[in-house]
């Protein structure tokens, strides 16, 4: 590379840095502001992710599942059979044939960067927020269940029966698809997702775009496995120990 080119590259990257800091309000640095103001829209300057250390999950994720049920109120559908009941997060046990080594991991929506469920949705109900959270906009979901078929992680469920007494922050209803939304109301309020608070020794939540965040540092140092990395979906949920 010629000297001029390298000079130009430095200059442009410097400009980008200036632009990034200039967009933030005076005195407020986005990286340090973990709770966004209620009237502030989700920003694409962050991308939320979760790192799960399966070696430290002694119960295989039971506490996370219980916390998720409590937070969102799924799993107690009275008239649905086991195949129909909602499951936002499930325990998956994998055994390697050669060694017999068994790993149990909690699997939920992996919050892909390029989510197949969003690709196939005919109404735009299956959506990715600016901050990388993949969720269902149930207001426009028609319940076609294409997204359930497209998801390689089997993360989505369909509500088969009329519900009442839902959680106020988690509206759920018959005829719509639902899945882990990374506890979007908690995240917007600056809190951790419920599963992360249920097993803080094994789960880490943070901003994947911020190189100074704990999750980014941990991933940079030790890496993190994606499930079905061959699909190239660049998941927001990463694992250790699988």
């Amino acid at each position: 590379m010629s000297n001029i080119d390298s000079y130009r590259r430095k200059f442009i990257s410097g400009l980008a840095g200036v632009a990034a800091t200039a967009t933030v309000a005076p005195g407020v640095f986005l990286r340090q502001a973990h709770a966004k103001a209620p009237d502030e829209p989700a920003s694409d300057k962050v991308r939320w992710g979760i790192l799960i250390d399966t070696n430290k999950l002694t119960d295989g994720g039971d506490a996370c599942i219980a916390a998720c049920k409590k937070e969102h109120g799924w799993g107690d559908e009275k008239h649905s059979n086991d195949a129909q009941k909602s499951q936002w997060i499930r325990k998956v046990t994998v055994t390697e044939k050669l060694t017999g080594h068994t790993v149990t991991l909690p699997v939920m929506c992996q919050h892909c960067e390029t989510p197949p469920c969003v690709d196939v949705c005919p109404t735009g109900a299956s959506m990715k927020r600016a901050d990388g959270i993949v969720q269902v906009n149930k207001h426009i979901c028609i319940g076609c269940r294409y997204c359930m078929m497209a998801c390689p992680y089997k993360a989505r469920s369909f509500v088969h029966e009329e519900l009442q007494d839902q959680k106020q922050n988690t509206p759920r209803g018959k005829g719509t698809v639902e899945s882990c939304n990374m506890c979007v109301t908690r995240v917007d309020a600056g809190k951790n997702p419920a599963c992360v608070d249920a097993a803080p020794e094994a789960l880490l939540f943070g901003d994947l775009k911020d190189p100074e965040s704990k999750i980014s540092k941990a991933l940079k140092k030790y890496g993190g496995t994606q499930i079905r990395a061959d699909l190239g979906l660049n998941t927001g949920v990463r694992y250790w120990g699988i």
Binding site: K36, P38, D39, E40, P41, A42, M127, R129, A130, D131, Q135, N137, K138, H139, Q168, N169, V184, T185, D188, A189
Partner: peptide, 21 residues
Amino acid sequence: KRDETVIKGIRTEEHSLNACI
């Protein structure tokens, strides 16, 4: 407000259904 909330994550009390209820 429902679109603002679900798509953009704006969760002010004004015109929120939960606040009405």
